[in-house]
Amino acid sequence: MSIEVNGKTYETDEEGYLANLNDWTPEVGAAMAAADDCELTDAHWEVINFLREYYEEYQIAPAVRVLTKAIGKKLGKDKGNSKYLYQLFPYGPAKQACKYAGLPKPTGCV
């Protein structure tokens, strides 16, 4: 599978996750979201950027429970809860946001 952005083709796995982490640009993330009928707002980007930073530091995509807790610690309790995160990413915060962030699917995610 692949996704095309601005005339360039990017390889993805069968679930739409980017095959090569280094291919990612914000435009690629936005295009993946658009394909899911999801328009990315600043609130979405805040989570996506958080995930990219988390990956940069730990080399893993966090599970949803871990993501929720870590967001709460960094961005405050009003954002570190499942309701807020599921509103932004209804297909599952870790799963969906990781995809747009160009990260692999979180370990332990089915």
């Binding site: 530091e57 730990y58 080399q59 893993i60």
Partner: peptide, 14 residues
């Protein structure tokens, strides 16, 4: 090869 050792530091989060 991928350096997976940074992930040990995430175990506390888990």
């Amino acid at each position: 090869m991928k350096n997976f050792s940074p992930a040990y530091a995430a175990l506390g989060d888990y």
